[in-house]
Design a protein around this nucleic acid. Structure first.
Length: 914
RNA sequence: GGGGGGUUAGCUCAGCGGUAGAGCGCCUGCUUUACACGCAGGUGGUCGCAGGUUCGAUCCCUGCACCCCCCACCA
């Protein structure tokens, strides 16, 4: 019997000494959750873990029991979020799943912290995007929407919308999103449409909405105007064409440069800079428009023309260029529309009428080249494309509605400046300010069929009325009937109202009064301008309050470093991932991938890793429940004696709980996930469960000690389940049910904050040393080529660097001996025959029966050279007087101690080599 | 043209003034009575390059290289 003789006695004394210092039920569980009399069968978990077997069941339990609805008195602390409403264009991809997972983690966490949580679901009609989906469907059947007519077309979109909404809803439920479905909204619901109309009318009356003919971004494929934000600029290789115009009295004429020669048909002037000597001879003259033969004036304009750039002469096409349009206004020039809304040349284009704009370009280039008027050179410039269909955008003069944005932007800037709204990560603040500073008026009318009709009505006499209710007759002249504007509003016009329109605003509904403003908005940074900025402007302008206090802008999901796209074929369907790995694993993966950066990298390998973690938890639960074996666990755990491992694991548990809370508060979902992962896997499972097996099996310890272990185990299990619930709601609820017999209640169980248990640094110190010793013993075997089961003798010198620890370590001698397979453990100086080392401040000696293989020599040499290198570095530091002088004393002290440790190790290892 | 971000282990990413971490991968063992979706041990990094500040820099500053993103009426 080689066991250290007094080990047990010391262990017991240590246990008594290890009583909790705060005996008054410091646990977060209000009552003992491990129900005594619950049936045995309910306490057992199936051997195999199948996520599919319980996920949907728990979701419906939560939903039917109203867990997703805010509970508690109005006015009590609440936490409110609105979902960024997904477009009803199809199904959600993994990027949506990421954002929703983050939101659900917040929602579940806050709910468990006792707040009244409301998370509002809904969808967005997504005007142009959804219309395109249906147009494509029709095109497959060879139908053009115009054949169908507006009414029939819109009906079809509604039918599609219902389907898409169901798909999206199912996806979010599978993911586990704790959304309050009783409050689900759609941007074209009657009450939300009323809010849109109300806002339009108010802005109109305030002079912040106006109508006019301007050059706007026009998509010839969608045949609608789009806003500046909906134009995607891309560097494109093209040509810069130089065209010579004849000028009466000026030999050589005037040469202009353009990237779009077809627009010359719409030129109504040439422009020069008034102070440019190169072109002064052209001043006041008249040029002849080639091909057309029309005379156009040469005007002087210092704003449009850059003296330093190009030929100094600019062609002016007021109908097809925003700058030229402004210039035309200044000089009272006519505007000739030569490219029509469908991208084909108009009647004003003369012989080119009816041609596609690019075909016309080709022909004009050929003709002018033949005439000797045109030269071309390669040119790379930025060309605008339609965000939705990638068609080249055409600047186009048309009648549109606009929001005058500057007066709305000012308060929105202030709200962020004064901290009413904060961005997380904070770095987005600057981007937001930059954009707000240069913001332009917003073109809100769209020549589409799917969306909110603009509430403007024109009477037979041409009077325009804007009103919330459809007017029966003209308020000005009483004429009838009135025609409503056929345009619809930009989708984002309704989205900007989402945080309050979902609550029934402008009515002062109970929900609006209770839940507005919301707390946190979570969304991708890609819609900061489209949506977030506009919500802030609208919220402040219409409700007088910022619509949320925190904006968490997250990165965009990338798969294996690449942007997700259908053409790359790397799109991950959340439902497929859920089917393969389970919703909990998918969620955990997404949470772990979260980072402050602009991209969120998701890989299959990580999904498998999370699934493995889920299985790990499952098996740890099985182990724990079998250890409890239906037994009552003492409620008054606090008053019981705890062993050092128990103290250690509870201390670590409290640390994990604090970390999880801290990281969630900072929106660091990756760090939060990693904290609980590391605790459950590497501390609870790898260490604690292994440490207590001998006690649980009855091979060691008293019944009292077994009870203590059971108490610690159940505390660890239940707290881990609670800490993990926001990340892995299904699995944790399933285990919780089996453990407590209270189905479906984890979702509202108190969230561990770590405050109930204290950090036990003494226990941590001792147990960390034990773990280090065990590791050292194991790799010592490896070095010696001994099998893992080969017994190792261990000496711990009483005069170790850490003397206190050296004597304290015997409190856990049986533990060390069992886990390290150490038959001999002696508190005495190691003999010369032993291999010596210093581990965790303990001078130790190790001895194992020599084995044939001696693979450890190289390792030992490496260890020694590592030590030597570090020692050299540190000691040269210590020799440096300015380090000792200027570095903080704590750092110097730490360095000194490390140096001593290295000396010890070096001495020990050098001896061991002999 | 303006602005922002990145460059850390084979891969994907954390860290950020006191000489480096995770997951996956890789190598070696292992029917240790919760788990092979496992256990134990291990391999692997002049922290993009060059200067500077500092007692000390992967971390702060400057410059450079390469990559990515956003904004902009670059005829």
């Amino acid at each position: 019997m080689g066991r250290f003789a007094t080990g047990k006695k010391i262990e017991r004394r240590a246990a008594v000494f290890a009583i909790y210092e705060r005996p008054a039920t410091p646990f977060f569980m209000p009552e003992n959750p491990l129900v005594t009399e619950s049936e045995d069968s309910a306490r057992k978990l199936p051997k195999t873990f199948e996520p599919g077997s319980f996920e949907e069941r728990w979701y419906s339990v939560w939903e039917t029991e109203g867990r997703f609805q805010p509970s508690g008195a109005p006015g009590s602390p609440r936490f409110v979020m609105v979902i960024p409403p997904p477009n009803v264009t199809g199904k959600l991809h993994i990027g949506h799943a990421y954002g929703r997972t983050v939101e659900d983690i917040l929602a579940r966490w806050k709910r468990m912290l006792g707040l009244r949580v409301l998370w509002v679901p809904g969808t967005d009609h997504a005007g142009i995007a959804t219309q395109m989906v249906i147009e494509r469907q029709l095109a497959k059947q060879g139908i053009d929407r115009r054949e169908l007519g507006r009414e029939k077309f819109v009906e079809r979109v509604w039918a599609w919308k219902r389907e898409a909404k169901d798909t999206i809803q199912t996806q979010m439920k599978r993911l586990g999103c704790s959304l309050d479905w009783t409050r689900e909204r759609f941007t074209m619901d009657p009450d939300l449409s009323r809010a849109v109309r109300h806002v339009f009318v108010r802005l109109y009356e305030q002079g912040l909405i106006y109508r006019g003919r301007y050059v706007v971004n026009w998509c010839p494929r969608c045949e609608t105007a789009v806003s500046d934000l909906e134009v995607v600029h891309r560097e494109t290789d093209g040509s810069l064409f130089k065209i010579r115009y004849d000028v009466a009295g000026v030999p050589g004429g005037a040469t202009v440069a353009t990237t779009r020669p077809e627009t010359m048909l719409g030129d109504t002037a040439l422009a020069i800079h008034p102070e440019d000597l190169r072109t002064s001879k052209l001043a006041g003259r008249t040029a002849i428009l080639p091909i057309v033969g029309r005379e156009i004036p040469i005007v002087e304009d210092a704003i449009l023309v850059n003296r330093e750039f190009g030929t100094g002469v600019v062609k002016v096409t007021p109908a097809h260029d925003a700058n030229d349009f402004a210039m035309g206004k200044r000089h009272d020039l006519p505007a000739a529309v030569v490219i029509g809304p469908n991208g084909r040349m108009t009647a004003d284009a003369g012989e080119y009428a009816g041609l596609d704009r690019f075909e016309a370009r080709k022909q004009i280039v050929t003709r002018l080249t033949d005439e000797g008027r045109l030269t071309a050179e390669p040119y790379r410039n930025s060309v605008g494309h339609c965000q939705r269909c990638d068609t080249v955008i055409e600047p186009y003069l048309s009648e549109q509605w606009f929001v005058k944005i500057a007066p709305l932007a000012q308060p929105a800037v202030r709200a962020v400046e004064d901290g009413t709204i904060r961005f997380v990560p904070e770095s987005w603040t600057k981007t937001y300010f930059e954009w707000m500073k240069n913001i332009h008026d917003w073109c809100i009318s769209r020549q589409l069929w799917w969306g909110h009709r603009i509430p403007a009505f024109t009477c037979p006499n041409g009077h325009v009325t804007v009103s919330e209710e459809d007017p029966a007759a003209c308020p000005t002249c009483a004429a009838a009937p009135l025609e409503q504007d056929t345009d619809v509003l930009d989708t984002w016009f309704s989205s900007q109202l989402w945080p309050f329109s979902v609550f029934g605003w402008p009515e002062k509904t109970e929900d609006f009064l209770d839940f507005y403003p919301t707390d946190v908005l979570v969304t991708g940074y890609d819609i900061l301008f489209f949506w977030v900025a506009r919500m802030i402007m609208a919220g402040l302008h219409f409700t007088g309050e910022a619509p949320f206090s925190t904006v968490h802008l997250h990165g965009l999901v990338r798969i294996g470093g690449e942007k997700m796209s259908k053409t790359r074929g790397n799109v991950i369907d959340p439902l497929e991932a859920i089917a393969e790995f389970g919703a909990d694993a998918v969620r955990f993966t997404l949470a772990s991938a979260a980072s402050s950066g602009a991209t969120v990298s998701v890989e299959r390998g990580r999904m498998a890793g999370s699934r493995n973690f889920a299985t790990k938890l499952w098996n740890a639960a099985r182990f724990t429940l079998s250890a409890l074996d239906g037994r009552t666990v003492p409620t008054e755990l606090a008053s019981r004696a705890l062993s050092l491992p128990g103290r250690w694991v509870l201390s670590r548990l409290s640390g994990a709980a604090r970390d999880v809370n801290r990281h969630l508060s900072g929106f660091r979902f990756d760090e939060a996930a990693s904290s609980i992962y590391a605790f459950v896997w590497h501390e609870l499972c790898d260490a604690y469960l292994e440490m207590v097996k001998p006690v649980l099996s009855g091979r060691e310890g008293t019944e009292e000690e077994r009870e203590s272990v059971r108490g610690v185990l159940s505390r660890c299990l239940l707290d881990s389940l609670a800490l993990l619930h926001p990340f892995m709601p299904f699995l944790t609820e399933e285990i919780w049910d089996k453990a407590t017999g209270r189905p479906g209640t984890l979702i509202v169980a108190p969230f561990p904050t770590g405050e109930a248990l204290r950090t036990d640094s003494e226990a941590e110190h001792v147990i960390e040393a034990v773990r280090a010793l065990i590791t050292r013993v194991r790799n010592y075997r490896g070095e010696r080529g001994a099998t893992p089961t080969e017994p190792v003798e261990l000496w711990v010198a009483p005069d170790s660097p850490d003397r206190e620890l050296a004597s304290g370590i015997f409190a856990v001698a049986p533990l060390l001996q069992h886990l390290g397979r150490i038959p001999q453990l002696r508190l005495e100086a190691p003999p010369a025959s032993a291999f010596r080392d210093v581990v965790a401040g303990l001078s130790v000696g190790l001895r194992v029966k020599e084995s044939a293989s001696e693979s450890g020599g190289a390792r030992l040499e490496k260890a020694l050279s590592d030590i030597e290198q570090e020692y050299e570095g540190l000691s040269s530091k210590m020799r440096n007087p300015s380090f000792v002088d200027k570095a903080p004393p704590a750092v110097v002290e730490k360095t000194r101690r490390r140096l001593l440790e290295l000396e010890e190790r070096r001495a020990a290892l050098s001896g061991g080599r002999a």
